[in-house]
Every structure is written in structure tokens, then in C-alpha cells.
């Protein structure tokens, strides 16, 4: 459940697209990305509150992942600016963005399968002098830091219940465990903001609860979390604030309880489903939303 402080901080924020936040960590202006003739992202203004869990939702093709890629430097915008902790990230390559403290995970998990779990974890750590070609040749120069990193990695593995798999190849883990590993690995660099791209996709329901717990724990440790998600259940349960995208634009913002009732959201999400009555509040229960989501996805795949 959302913590009080985050909820309180966001209580007075107007429920409208581009609303100003009391303590924004990310501020983006006029971010546009075009592919050929199509505009995938066209965000006029958005702010992300520090220390809160913000969900980025929207139907498929709304530009969520592309916006994510732009913020984290994995894609270059056609135009636009944005800042992270007051400094512009525009034009910074992905690696520099990560080193500034904004670390992401991927929709399709990128565990490095032919490396062991512990090696995956060690790779996540920053400032290892042994990652320099010349220092690498002199082990005494990096052994001490390696020990620290290993300790930190082992603690995180225990926390994410992966310590039994320490020396297995990451490729041998289940889908959910890989998600956990990816998240744990991202934490190795002690980031200030964690960006999760569909953390629930492909996760066994048995692991869902623990994954949710981990995400909340991140916020409780003082990190800011932004995640893209299709799972409405998860959005409702853990997010403090929800941003809704459709056709590349931000169409609504607000706390999870109210944003779902925004007519713009209903339009955006279910435009193709006018045969269903969406005015009914019950319709927006998790189950129905999930089912609709599945339908939308199925259609998307057919296309």
C-alpha cells in the first residue's frame, strides 16, 4: 500500500496531465520522438515525484516503452529536453544516464544467461577500478573493491532470495527469478531512481507478491520508482501516482483510485471496445481491467 508521506505529498497535486509536483526528480518538456512519419511520443510536460512509486500505463502502442527509452538514453528524441535531479540528461548516452543514478530494467529480461548469478551482480556495481583495461592487469589494485562488491551482492541475493543460485548460470533461472536478478543487479549501483519496464511480465503468480514487496521496499529505502505496467492489479496496489499515456501523449494523471475513472483514460484504453459499458465503476475492477487488457493485447498481436 502507498505510504503516507508519498500520498500526502501528492495529495494537493491537481489531477491533470502535466501537473506540477512538490518535489520533482524528473522534469520533461516537449519530448517528441518520430519514427518515419509516425509520432510515437509527444509529451508536452511531465514531472515525476521524488520518493514515490509512479506507474506509467496506457494501451499498447501508447509510447510508454519509447518514452522510457528516451528518458534513459536508449533512444534519441527528435526534439525535447528533460532533467534528472535538476541536470539535463538530454543527449547523454545510456551508460552516463545510469551512472547519474537512473537505472532501468527491460521488458524482455536481460539477464546475462551465460554468466553466473554472482557475476551478473558484480557487473552491476560501479567504480570498480579493475574495469579499466590497464588496472585489470594488476589484481592487487582491484581485489579489495571486488571483495566489497561481492559482499554487497551477496546481501542483495539474500534479500531477493537468490542466494541459493549464487553460482548457477543466470540462464538456468526461471522467468520470475530472472526479473528479480535484474532488479537486484540494478540495485548494485545504489541508484536514486529505478525504472522498471513491465516488471510483472512473464512472472509466475507465486512470485508476484514478493516482487511487489521488493518494489515497495525500494521506495521505503528512499528510491524513486517509475514503472511501465500492464497489470492493473499491480498498478492499483503499489503505485502512489499514475500517469496515463495514449497515442504518444499524456492524457491523464492522478492517484490510482481516481485516475481510472477519468473519461480520457476510459477513451484511450477502451476506444476499441465501445460495445462494453465503461461508465460502470465495477467495470474498472482489477479483473475486468485485466481481461480488457488481455483483449487489447490479443488484438495487437493479431495486427
Amino acid at each position: 500500500m502507498p505510504t503516507d508521506s508519498a500520498v500526502r505529498a501528492l495529495a494537493d497535486v491537481p489531477r491533470e496531465p502535466g501537473a506540477a509536483k512538490p518535489d520533482p526528480i524528473v522534469v520533461a518538456d516537449d519530448v517528441v520522438r518520430r519514427f518515419g512519419g509516425m509520432t510515437a511520443v509527444d509529451v508536452q510536460h511531465v514531472e515525476i515525484q521524488r520518493g514515490a512509486i509512479t506507474a506509467l500505463i496506457g494501451p499498447n502502442g501508447a509510447g510508454k516503452t519509447t518514452f522510457f527509452n528516451l528518458l534513459t538514453g536508449f533512444d534519441k528524441p527528435s526534439s525535447g529536453t528533460w532533467t534528472f535531479e535538476g541536470r539535463s540528461l538530454h543527449g547523454l548516452p545510456a551508460a552516463r544516464v545510469a551512472r547519474k543514478g537512473m537505472v532501468r530494467t527491460f521488458q524482455l529480461t536481460k539477464a546475462l544467461s551465460r554468466m553466473t548469478v554472482i557475476e551478473n551482480m558484480r557487473l552491476g556495481a560501479g567504480s570498480q577500478p579493475g574495469e579499466n583495461l590497464f588496472t585489470a592487469l594488476v589484481p592487487p589494485l582491484w581485489r579489495a573493491r571486488e571483495r566489497e562488491i561481492t559482499e554487497q551482492a551477496e546481501e542483495l541475493l539474500v534479500r531477493f532470495k537468490l542466494d541459493h543460485h549464487r553460482d548457477s548460470f543466470a540462464g538456468s533461472l526461471s522467468g520470475g527469478q530472472r526479473k528479480l536478478l535484474e532488479m537486484a543487479r540494478a540495485l548494485m549501483s545504489k541508484p536514486t531512481m529505478v525504472m522498471l519496464d513491465e516488471p510483472m511480465a512473464g512472472v509466475n503468480p507465486a512470485l508476484t507478491q514478493s516482487l511487489l514487496g521488493h518494489i515497495q521496499a525500494l521506495r521505503d529505502d528512499g528510491m524513486t520508482v517509475l514503472f511501465v505496467e500492464h497489470d492493473m492489479h499491480m498498478v492499483r496496489h503499489i503505485s502512489d501516482w499514475v500517469i496515463v499515456m495514449a497515442e504518444g501523449r499524456i492524457v491523464a494523471e492522478g492517484p490510482p483510485e481516481t485516475v481510472m475513472q477519468d473519461p480520457a483514460v476510459v477513451d484511450a484504453y477502451l476506444g476499441a471496445h465501445h460495445d462494453t459499458d465503461l461508465g460502470d465503476d465495477a467495470l474498472l475492477s482489477d479483473d475486468v481491467a485485466e481481461q480488457l487488457e488481455a483483449e487489447v493485447q490479443a488484438e495487437e498481436e493479431k495486427r
Binding site: 519514427f35 518515419g36 516503452t65 536508449f74 533512444d75
Partner: peptide, 13 residues
């Protein structure tokens, strides 16, 4: 122009 003369740019990832 890695996508070639007639190719299209595509989304990464």
C-alpha cells in the same frame, strides 16, 4: 544511414 537508402528506422529494444 545504417538502414540503407530505402530502409526505415525502427525502435530499439
Amino acid at each position: 544511414r545504417p538502414q540503407g537508402i530505402l530502409g526505415r528506422a525502427t525502435r530499439v529494444g
